[in-house]
Nucleic acid binder design. Sequence first.
DNA 1: AGGCAAACGGACAGAGTTATCCGCTTGCGG
DNA 2: CCGCAAGCGGATAACTCTGTCCGTTTGCCT
Lengths: 230, 230
Amino acid sequence: MAAEDSQMTSAVNGPAAAEAEASLRADARENRQKILAAARHLFATKGIDVPMSAIAREAEVGMATLYRRFPTRQDLLIEVFAEQFAQCAAIVEAALADPDAWRGLCTAVEGLAAMQAEDHGFSAAFVGRLPQASMVAEKLRQGVAGFQQLIHRAKNSGRLRRDFTFDDLALVLMANSGVVQNAPNSTAAASKRLVGYLLDAFRTDGTPRRPLPPPVPTDLTRVAFPSTPR
Amino acid sequence: MAAEDSQMTSAVNGPAAAEAEASLRADARENRQKILAAARHLFATKGIDVPMSAIAREAEVGMATLYRRFPTRQDLLIEVFAEQFAQCAAIVEAALADPDAWRGLCTAVEGLAAMQAEDHGFSAAFVGRLPQASMVAEKLRQGVAGFQQLIHRAKNSGRLRRDFTFDDLALVLMANSGVVQNAPNSTAAASKRLVGYLLDAFRTDGTPRRPLPPPVPTDLTRVAFPSTPR
DNA sequence: AGGCAAACGGACAGAGTTATCCGCTTGCGG
DNA sequence: CCGCAAGCGGATAACTCTGTCCGTTTGCCT
């Protein structure tokens, strides 16, 4: 399983990353993987602003090694999140397979939002500064195309309101990122409830309501961040 | 108008701030106002993370003066945003005066969201780390109470869905803060559309739909920040 | 086995921010 | 009008994070 790790990454990131990886010395290749693992972990838990030094420490490599492999933070982000962008595309793909167009759309939106909720770093990377480079952009384009088709089908089924736009997906993701960022502990629950409301708003007036996820108690006077106030 | 500035601030922040202000020497009092004005401006445009030195420079005072008046950033935040919290309470108050309970609720939510959209700093301060001190907390409690009443009335009118919770207001604000943060240029429009959708979701199934604000074109591949990528 | 290029790591310079110290200036009560 | 406490500004210490340099180690090919 761990042995296939590098293969998977290469497959996701395309030939560029693959050949960069292949021409490396054995120890270098291993370090590269350790760096990616550490970055993946830290980006997800602490957000994309973790110091490079923290990543190096967790990966048990020196600063120089880190910067030699990934000259900029962006380069690291691209590699790390490429996999997750691919997963996004897969979610859309799966939704397209659903014979019920409206249900498919709901599944896709819920899936994408859930991904955001699970991974703080990904959320920020996706909604915020986006690396327009490499395979990431390609996977994104792919996902976009799929989602547009999803919208088209759902509208034709008469369940999705006709004034819904593709841009509203971005709206959902931006809104969800706000919830993910600010909901203290119950990130997942809060995100689910938001998405529940939004999907309810997206349906045509006649479409039956879907059950709404439970409310999430939130102390307005202390909607502070989990641990570090940073 | 400018002459009443200090009076207004004092009125909003209660006796504590008022007496702090009164016992100051004339020049000191003036500097204090200059600092508050600069902070208000910079927090709104650049967010609450602007360097203290930037505030001092804009206020045309030294660092020491700034820190003497406001030992911590929090202290400054409290003063600056107290006024806006008061405005929130006023919005809720006004909404309560509307004989149509449902319309009142909509107005309130729209008003609060618009405030967030207009002032980046306020958005962050409100949804994020919240100063639990002083008059701010009081105004907040006041607003909370009013809003709960608003909810109660709207539910009784049969227009607001019964599973709506007060916590959902926090949800709206968190979501909106995400949009405000990430919508590149069209902050206001994006925020309006989000709120439009959410209010649509909040109504009972029978309640007629309200017109939805227009869609906001968003380039998913470059939802980057306005200017500085930070 | 042996040599060399590739790789390593940690120290360190540079940039930016927070918060404090200290010598000079000034409003204001007596 | 005068003295002094209150106030002022800017230099600067302390810290954090980024990105580079350089002396040392090590994989790999012959």
